[in-house]
Computed example of a mutant assay.
Amino acid sequence: MKKSYLVTLGLALAVVISSAFTKDEPRYKNLKVLPKNTTKEQMDSVMKHFTVALGVKCNFCHVYNQEQKSMDFASDGNNHKSIARDMLKMTAKLNDKYFNVKHADKLDADLEVTCYTCHNGKVHPAKFGVKPQQQQPPADTTRKM
Rank of each mutant, 00 (worst) to 15 (best):
T38P: 01
S75I: 04
F73C: 01
K36C: 00
P35V: 04
Q68W: 08
K57W: 03
F60G: 00
N59D: 08
P35W: 02
K40F: 06
C58M: 06
N30Y: 10
N30Q: 11
G55L: 04
F50D: 02
E67F: 10
Y28K: 02
C58F: 06
A53P: 01
K36I: 09
V33C: 05
V56T: 06
N59R: 13
E67M: 08
K36S: 10
F50G: 01
F73M: 12
M71C: 13
V33I: 14
Y28C: 02
S70G: 06
V16T: 15
F21V: 15
K32S: 11
H80C: 07
H80N: 15
K29S: 09
C61H: 03
K36A: 09
D72T: 12
V15G: 10
D76W: 15
L34D: 00
N30P: 03
L34C: 09
T39G: 04
S18P: 06
L31S: 04
K57T: 12
E41F: 11
N30R: 11
K57M: 04
M71V: 15
D44T: 14
T51D: 09
R27Y: 02
V46A: 04
K23H: 14
N30I: 08
Q42R: 05
S75W: 07
T22N: 10
S70C: 08
M43S: 05
I17Q: 10
V15H: 09
F50A: 05
A20V: 09
R27F: 00
E67R: 13
L34A: 12
N37L: 01
S75H: 08
N79G: 07
L13Y: 14
L54Q: 06
N79T: 13
V52T: 13
D24Q: 11
G55F: 07
N79A: 11
F50M: 08
K23Q: 14
T51P: 01
A14G: 11
K40V: 07
C58S: 11
M71W: 11
S75F: 08
A74M: 03
D72F: 10
F50Q: 02
K69D: 09
K36D: 05
P35L: 02
S70Y: 07
C61M: 06
G55R: 10
S70T: 15
S18K: 07
A20H: 13
V46Y: 02
V16E: 00
D24W: 08
H49K: 14
G77L: 04
I17W: 10
S18L: 06
D44E: 12
V33W: 06
Y28G: 02
